[in-house]
Amino acid sequence: MDISRHWRNRKQRYRLVGEVCPHCGAKLFPPRDVCPHCGMEAKTVETLVGTGTVYAFTTVRQAPSDFAEQSPYVVALISLDDGPMLTAQLTDLGDVEPYVGMRVEMVTRKLRNADDERGLIIYGYKFRPVLERALA
């Protein structure tokens, strides 16, 4: 079990902590310290808003062993309102069929059980349809 790898990424997983480039203003997620847009150093911490739209989605029916018990599940590319795109699962869909352009928001959910006899669980971001009451 690679605990330190998951612990190290906790700010990204739980709060979408990325970076903003002090030179060109681009927001970066995941953090990468060198701005891909202007090539300058970009280490200024910035927490992203966590809302966005679905760019594309698919249902995974042949899952890797770590995700086998969740299969089938929906994974998507999400264009964040802050600018970057990320990969995340869609959750809390209920009877809602996802669609390209669907408005979604970040929530914290269980990503998977760690392959660990102590029963550790890895949490992180997933995205759900934006709730009606949030819009009101």
């Binding site: 760019y55 594309a56 989605f57 890797p64 994974v75 998507a76 590319l77 990320l86 990969t87 992180g124």
Partner: peptide, 23 residues
């Protein structure tokens, strides 16, 4: 850290491209 840990696979990644291409 940012693709595989969210359950993405190479086939799912290609599916995302295919859906968006058709769209």
């Amino acid at each position: 850290d940012y693709e595989a840990e969210h359950g993405l696979t190479p086939a799912a990644q290609a599916a995302l491209l295919m859906q968006r291409y058709i769209h």
